[in-house]
Amino acid sequence: MTKKEKMNKIVISIIIGLICIVLVATILMQFKTVEETDITAIETMREAELRTALSEWKTKYEETNKQLEDTNTKITEYEETADDRQETANLIDQELEQTNMILGKTDVKGPGIIVILEDGDSEVVASDLVELVNELRYAGAEAISINDSRVVNMTEIVEIDNSYIIINGSKRLTSPYEVKAIGNQSYLTSILSLKDSGYIDKYRNSGRIVNIEEKREVKIPKYDGEMKFEYATEKEEE
């Protein structure tokens, strides 16, 4: 009986010892696993968790991509409009330049002629100059000046007291009158030097000295007065 009891006790001890081994080992393994999991979460995460995380990141990535695209398209739009504005600005600049040139607000140069008119037996009067300017314009002169005073669309050439000629408000002109014109040289000269009825013949016959000279480059200064409308305003279209 004692032997059997002892055997029983030994068996029980061994079994309990084995159970202790299993229990403590598993507990420690679990501890280690949990500890490691905090550090390397991804490697030991469950597949499902990984999948959800992946899909979340994917959606986030897609959203961010979309935003990027939107921003890019916006940027290109802005760039296009900026280009357009640049173009319009350039066009406006060009137009402004042209308008200024037409108005006579810029110094210009080009091929043309110089007509020199001098008092001869009879004096040169304002109407002579006006006629000359008209003739030149008829011949297609693009820019005209008299004694380096630019003739623009508002220019007046008047005679005051039958004694002196005034141009552009305050400039007094005296003989010799040097009239410069830029334009097609052959047109200009041919119109002026028509036989008998032409300007040169006509005025030479009436006792003035008229000389004409063709030049490859004629320089005409800009109009140096002020141009502004005080009474006229733009009429709005209805």
Partner: peptide
């Protein structure tokens, strides 16, 4: 049993989180 189990547990490989 506890001591042996502790030794085994310390040197055992990590089981996957699953």
């Amino acid at each position: 049993g506890c001591i042996i189990g502790a030794i085994i547990g310390i040197y055992a490989p990590i089981i996957p989180y699953t």
